[in-house]
Amino acid sequence: MTTLLQVNHLNMRFGGVVALNDCNFQVEKNSITALIGPNGAGKTTAFNCITGFYRANQGQLHFFPPNRPSVNLIQLLGQPFTWTDPIHPRRTLKKLGYKLFGGPHRIARAGIARTFQNVRLFKEMTVLENLLVAQHRQLVGHFLSGILNAKNFRKAENNALDHAMKWLAFFQLTTEANRLAGQLPYGHQRRVEIARALCTDPILLCLDEPAAGLNPQETKALSQLIRRLQKELHLTILLIEHDIGLVMELSDHVIVLDYGEVIAQGPPAAVQQNQKVLEAYLG
């Protein structure tokens, strides 16, 4: 097992509220890791730090994509300037670059895709367009040929369409391709969102409560799909979930957060017996 994501001493405060306090955990490659905990434990905050929507106050986040150099996720967000900067002009320039052009999109490009707790689709666009937007990076280079509708643009566009259709087929959404995303039933919207995240060709897929609002059948189908993503497509999945049944059934590794701290982690069976975890959930 190799580590894909390493979280060290992660701290996040909002004003006086400590949302994350010295969190340490790692996500193994090709695993399904679940982040659980009571409401307000800091799960979504941790997620937002990892995917770059919040800048952590302290700590390190390192991402080790296979066959590529490792990525310091916090650096990608742009760090504040310090008084030692003038001594290292090159480092400062790099910092400036990240400050100007950095942000969560850089983390997405590094190979971390995510979904949102409250589904965030482009509602006034069709499902297919949603999935095409996710492939923006692969397509945007063909500007002039796009204006002229030249062959290589059409080819790239068709490839993107095929790619999108492949994921739609995976999630059994092919018939919905040309419908407006906002008009789909909720369960379908959730799946479209995952499909859209997958269109970015991620290495690590972060799912924020993927089963929220789904009925038992839908949840079961979803869990099978997530399992297939791991087994057949060798993706690594990090998920937040309240449905403990789903977590226990699905995950290889469980991290329990309470009051912003990691109180337990390990295989699901071991975590289930942990005294601290029982206290956190019951008391």
Binding site: F14, G15, T44, N48, F53, Y54, F116
Partner: peptide, 8 residues
């Protein structure tokens, strides 16, 4: 004012 925290 307080710096805005965008809720995600």
């Amino acid at each position: 004012g307080h710096p805005q925290v965008v809720k995600v």
